[in-house]
């Protein structure tokens, strides 16, 4: 029953609008939410501060030398040069292999093979593959890629290409899933508009759907690249060297087919060594790895904004 407006005093209206005071459950909920945010932030900050505090002295003291020097049993001389190279090559292989394959697969699943039972089966399996522990991919890399290079007679097969391919396969499901989601998010009305003016399926896909999905695809690519560059377990199996080794004066091909290592491997190795100096080196290596990851993410955000603005 509504009160008759003319008889309601303004004070009553104000009291009505102000409600009955504090709603405690929502206050508690809000505090809980804020607390969990704070917990995450604090954990992150402590981690960052710890790593920076121990790593920065090494970095500022050694400077470029630390980034270029090869592995060594002498902590004063050891650097991440070989590891940076390995990580760089792995990154290139991941970008060159996983992204075209992943995006092409996603396009096929979303635009061409929609709705069939086989598609749904493949879709479910890709989702499961994304959750498979990375060590399993290491076994795959050992059996398939290392085995292949060995069979081809290229040394013992434990080279950076085998490692890169292993990690590429590892992130492939993530690339496919994020790309498929980005493609699915493109409104059907855009596709219909394209078909409506007589565009073929390929034209609709290439000129309308992919450009519209591009920012989302890009985000997925960079996320999986960050993951790829941080992986250690599969690389151990796929033949990355844990100790120090010499690339000597090998040419590019020799380096690609010879022993290799990567940043996370080196960091892991250094933390297991008895000398304290190596733990500082490990922290410095982590700073470098974090810097690379942040740079990759920054690049993704930049590209995404740039391409969104073209519209």
């Amino acid at each position: 029953m509504q009160p008759n407006p003319s008889t309601v005093t303004s004070g009553a209206v104000r009291r009505g609008l102000q409600g009955s005071g504090t709603h405690w459950p929502s206050v508690v909920f809000q505090v809980l939410l804020a607390a969990s945010l704070l917990f995450t932030l604090v954990a992150l900050l402590v981690l960052l501060a710890d790593v920076l505090g121990r790593g920065m002295p090494v970095l500022s003291e050694r400077g470029i030398d630390f980034l270029t020097a090869p592995l060594s049993s002498d902590p004063a001389k050891a650097g991440v040069g070989q590891a940076l190279w390995g990580t760089f090559v792995i990154g290139v292989i991941v970008v060159g292999v996983a992204f075209p394959l992943g995006v092409a697969t996603a396009v096929y699943l979303e635009e061409y093979a929609t709705g069939s039972r086989l598609t749904r089966l493949v879709d479910v399996n890709i989702r499961n593959l994304a959750g498979v522990p990375s060590i399993v991919y290491g076994l795959l890399g050992l059996a398939v890629f290392v085995g292949l290079f060995k069979w081809l007679g290229l040394g013992n097969g434990r080279n950076v290409i085998a490692g890169g391919l292993t990690v590429a396969v590892l992130v492939l499901p993530i690339v496919i899933i994020t790309a498929a989601e980005a493609i699915r998010a493109v409104p059907i009305s855009i596709r219909e508009a394209g078909y409506g003016v007589g565009a073929s399926r390929w034209q609709v896909t290439a000129k309308l759907v992919l450009p519209a999905a591009f920012p989302g695809i890009l985000t997925g690519i960079v996320l999986s690249l960050s993951r790829a560059l941080g992986e250690t377990a599969p690389l151990i199996l796929a033949g990355a060297v844990l100790g120090s080794f010499s690339s000597g004066n090998a040419d590019l091909l020799g380096q690609l087919l010879g022993p290799y290592t990567a940043l996370p491997m080196v960091v892991y190795r250094w933390t297991t060594l008895p000398q304290d100096e190596f733990r500082q080196l490990a922290a410095a290596g982590m700073v470098v790895l974090l810097a690379i990851t942040f740079a990759a993410n920054g690049l993704a955000i930049y590209l995404r904004n740039r391409y969104s603005r073209v519209w």
Partner: peptide, 12 residues
């Protein structure tokens, strides 16, 4: 050709 219920220009 076709014109749809909801205007659907391309994001171009």
């Amino acid at each position: 050709g076709m014109v749809f219920q909801k205007p659907n220009p391309f994001p171009k």
